[in-house]
Amino acid sequence: MFEREDETVERVIQHLRRPVAIDPGLDARVMREIAQAPPNGRRVKLWPLLAAAAVLATVLVVRPWIWNAATTVDTLQFVLVAPQAASVALVGDFNDWDPARSPMQTAHGVWATVVRLAPGRYRYAFLVNGVEWRADPSAPAAKDDEFGTPSSVVTVGGRGS
């Protein structure tokens, strides 16, 4: 009887210990809120904070149409966690797929860059160490990749609310 109780509760515990999927955009929202209100009431210049806001916690793209779908948003932060990477570039329809155009900066293995985009639907991918293609796990996959490597899509813009 007592043993069975322990078994059931242990099963519950193991079940509850499984990872829980947290919205990947949460990190970005935290960093954005922080950028708007620094600690101790200090005034901080906008750009360093925007750069800091690009350093996010997990593999994610800050999808602007999720953040702010009601208006046309044209500044996006793309983020990839790749602690082992020596370099990461963001390439896509917005920069002629040219790795030299959007090299990403790292802080603690979190690679980030900010890109300004006009409304539209863009395909993109991360190029790690100049050789390895990675899609963005937190963004919709580009289902029609014709070149045998993964890509993601981001859609910018939208009708006002």
Binding site: V91, D93, D96, W97, D98, P99, R123, L127, W133, E146, F147, G148, T149, S151
Partner: peptide, 23 residues
């Protein structure tokens, strides 16, 4: 522009010319 971007994507990804043209 989308067509040009698709071609550039193919180049950067090292796709063959035939594949790029087909795409």
């Amino acid at each position: 522009e989308p067509i040009i971007q698709r071609a550039l994507e193919g180049v950067t990804k090292g796709a063959s010319g035939a594949r790029i043209v087909a795409a």
